[in-house]
Amino acid sequence: MNQWIAFWSIMFKDVRAYYLKPPNVSWGLIFPVAWTGMFFIRSGRGLDSVLDLLPGVVAISVLFGTTSMLAVTVTFEKKNRSFDRLLLAPIPLSLLMLAKTSGAILFGVFNAFVPILLAQFLTDLSRIAWMTVLPAVLLVAIASTFLGLFIAVSVSEVFEAQTFSNFFRFPMIFLCGLFFPISALPAFLRPLAFALPLTYGVDILRQGILGQSMLPTGLNLMILIGFCLALFIVSLRNVHRKWIV
């Protein structure tokens, strides 16, 4: 049996049924614009601040886009038992969960380019190292999506998915160096920052967009890949443990 037919069908079904719905597309557009505007005004430095804000806005757009959609859609499908159809399909659980998350990853990457496209009209992006930014965007999207999967597998109700998502997301905005450096955090909060995957994604984005970072890009990439693998493996184990009981 061609398992990839199932893979692509699950991905395209999710994109069509969930991610291309007008409310979600507008969420993907409005949210980054709102955050950019908020920090742009707060910086008080006019258009000079656009490039400084870009890594944080890109990261937050991906984080919110992926986690909210995936956690809710998976929880919804589990609740109305349509997820059982996927569990009954003769494909490995790992491939099934990759298919289920691939739509959210694409949505996350799409979200990342909304602020970049807007910045194109406001500042000069010619110095951006795209070969650094592109893998960073993809890895942040994957890590955020797998965080969403971890959340979805940990809850049973749709409203719990939203609440639990915010439990992770809002601290990340302030702890991961999105809009102010980790060095500015109180000393007792810094270890927490390094325990969150977004810290490393933002650091790579800062390197690619601003040419400055805390850690070497290679190390950041490796740690981020480690987070992706760990979140995926833990989520798979949880699916096995909690959903196939």
């Binding site: 079904k13 049924a17 349509s82 059982d84």
Partner: peptide
């Protein structure tokens, strides 16, 4: 009945067929 409420009857059947690798 646990098919996908947001898909049509035809799309639901095509999707379920794809889960079993049908072209």
């Amino acid at each position: 009945s646990n098919l996908y409420p947001e898909l049509s009857g035809y799309d639901n059947l095509c999707f379920c067929a794809a889960l079993y690798g049908m072209r």
